[in-house]
Design a protein around this nucleic acid. Structure first.
Lengths: 129, 129
DNA sequence: CAGCATCCGTTCTGATACTG
DNA sequence: CAGTATCAGAACGGATGCTG
């Protein structure tokens, strides 16, 4: 049994098992969303992922992939070959995350201009002082 | 004019103006979602917010609030009184963010158990080695 | 009351170089 | 090919003390 949301309606950012925190910690990460986006069309191997995303240090990519694997978002398949070949593929769970992400992206695209404008106003305001 | 999503379907995590990144950077922050959650029922003053959230250093809370104000998510109203009194209130923009957050929270609550189970499996697996 | 200044330990990040 | 090892720099988080 797992206790969910001990403080209903509020959430507890300290609780490492707070559902929202768990998810936010993962997709708040720069690389995770890019990995998901890169894998929606099908499995990819390490170097392909690396090339597709661009600018990722191998270490960081590995970290990201391991974290996602641990959370059951993707599978890591090692083929016993020389040279080695490792495929990464989204699990159904990982794929299902694309939904909420899309919602967020939509909101983001719709409201970005407002945010950017607000920033601009704020900054010129501050500048004036 | 603002260019949106220069690399359609993929997103560019490096572009500081990528809509998804802007939003993710904000709500990926531990405190932002708590602030939003605390303000949905109406405006609150600094100390009330602080008490409601619990465990926030004033500096960090200020940072969060400033960032949110800058993005137009909330307003900061200073009342000319002694002692000073400052009210924080969600803007319509800020309120509209509760939608996507709710979507995410729902997903999170639905799938948390799976994630936690996956972690457990992964960890015991690693432990066995 | 609201918050700024300061400081410090920790974490994160990425670059670079090397290996099974 | 698919990582691991190492390391320096930056960013962050938080505690403390002080002020308009």
């Amino acid at each position: 049994m797992v206790t969910i949301n001990s403080a209903p309606g509020r959430g507890d950012a300290f609780d490492p098992e707070c559902p929202t925190r768990v998810v936010l910690d993962r997709i708040g990460d720069k690389w995770t969303v890019l990995v998901i986006g890169s894998l929606v069309d099908g499995p990819l191997r390490f170097s392909a992922l690396r090339a597709r995303i661009g600018g990722v240090a191998p270490k960081v990519l590995t970290q990201t992939l391991r974290a996602m694997e641990r959370d059951g978002l993707l599978t890591r398949t090692v083929h016993a070959q020389v040279p080695p070949r490792v495929d990464y593929e989204l699990t159904p769970l990982g794929t299902s995350l694309t939904g909420p992400i899309a919602t967020l992206t939509e909101w983001a695209e719709t409201h970005l201009v407002r945010i950017l404008t607000a920033r601009d106003d704020y900054d010129t305001q501050a500048e004036a002082r």
